[in-house]
Design a protein around this nucleic acid. Structure first.
Length: 351
DNA sequence: CATCCGTGGGC
DNA sequence: TGCCCAAGGAT
């Protein structure tokens, strides 16, 4: 569908002053900011803790607020400072991250905490470039920590902000090519004062008003000059590339139980569920296993679907590396969701 | 620039 | 039910 963009109303809409844009957005944020465990309420005068800001930003990468909240509370209770986290055992951090997904984040989280302690005296660097050099901190996280924790004027762009700006400026270039135009449009709008609140306000707006489906344009503080407002095809923006089909894969997992304990292994650092505890089993492939099992789960990953068949076995291979884990404490093993599903099925079976 | 990397909730 | 999507980063 083609889009007309040349009428005078649209032209007027595009020329709102940056100051006015930020003022309307921040005014709305002062009234409507979400209350979140890692956030300092606007106008409170409180100073954000860079450690908590960073931890929340990493947890929130591609992950919903609802999923993160409990993990954030547990992490900050157990490891109140970056030095505490840096001193933690790898296995403890990985287990605490279990279920949150994208486990490279947990490995990088520890590497980053240790780098902050070893190379920065236990204090997070306060500028975007130095933050960007740390493990697990990319363009988004460097900008958001610089803005939110240190009040730096940084251009923060996440998926929410991409959507808000793509609509407000009617940017119809498909992602990811649209990123440059979005940055160019946003940069002059970022205020020198309250850049952190500005970024969080855009994210709140994207999460609650300018939503992917059914945006609430009627109550949007930016509607006066939004070029997509009222358009029937506003949900089309930002334009995203077509998704690829997900292949089906199959795998086997082994339930090896002795004396009230079960045999667990640790997955290789790289690849799927890297570094996480798991039930032993072979590689996953496109071919279904020949054996029939005592349980079976289907699990959808980002780029393939997996059917895992669970078989009972008597003992681990002689040379196998792993650990006997008490069944009574299996909840504390930190198994990823895939394996937790199998454990749940075994519990239903065996009682 | 494309691909890999989890999970749970909403509709 | 199946699909879409989320405060992305590393390679």
């Amino acid at each position: 569908m083609s889009v007309q963009t040349s009428d005078r109303t649209d032209r007027d809409k595009t020329e709102a002053a940056p100051v006015d844009f930020a003022a309307r957005l921040l005014g709305w944020y002062d009234r409507s900011a979400r209350v979140l465990p890692w956030r300092v309420p606007p106008g409170s005068g409180a100073v954000p803790d860079p450690y908590r800001v960073w931890l929340a930003e990493v947890m929130l990468q591609q992950t919903t607020v609802a999923a993160v909240t409990g993990y954030f509370e547990r992490f900050t209770t157990r490891w109140p400072t970056v030095a505490d986290l840096a001193a933690a055992a790898d296995a403890d951090v990985m287990a605490a991250w279990a279920g949150l997904g994208y486990y490279a984040r947990a490995r990088n989280l520890l590497a980053c905490a240790r780098a902050v302690v070893a190379e920065h005296g236990g204090r997070f660097p306060d500028c975007e470039a130095d933050l960007r050099a740390l493990p697990g901190i990319g363009d988004y996280t460097a900008a958001s920590v610089a803005a939110i924790a240190f009040g730096r004027r940084a251009v923060v762009i996440d998926a929410n902000i991409e959507r808000v700006i793509a609509r407000h400026r009617l940017i119809e270039i498909p992602l990811p090519a649209a990123k440059r135009a979005i940055r160019t449009a946003l940069e002059p709008l970022v205020p020198a004062e309250r850049p952190g609140d500005f970024a969080q306000a855009l994210m709140d707006l994207g999460a609650g008003i300018c939503t992917p489906r059914g945006p609430a344009c009627a109550i949007c503080p930016l509607m006066a000059d939004c070029r997509a407002r009222g358009r029937a095809d506003i949900e089309r923006l930002p334009v995203k590339p077509a998704k690829k089909a997900k292949p089906q894969r199959y795998g086997l997992a082994r339930w090896i139980e002795q004396g009230g304990r079960v045999w667990l292994v640790r997955r290789p650092e790289k690849g799927m569920l890297g570094g996480m505890r798991a039930l032993p089993g072979g590689e996953w492939s496109a071919i279904p296993p020949a054996e029939s099992g005592v349980a079976e789960v289907d699990h959808g990953f980002t780029h393939f679907d997996l059917r895992l068949t669970l078989v009972r076995d008597e003992a681990p291979l002689a040379a196998a590396e792993g650990e006997w884990w008490p069944l009574s404490a299996l909840d504390e093993a930190g198994l990823p969701t895939l394996y937790r599903k199998l454990v749940d099925q075994m519990r239903e079976k065996d009682g």
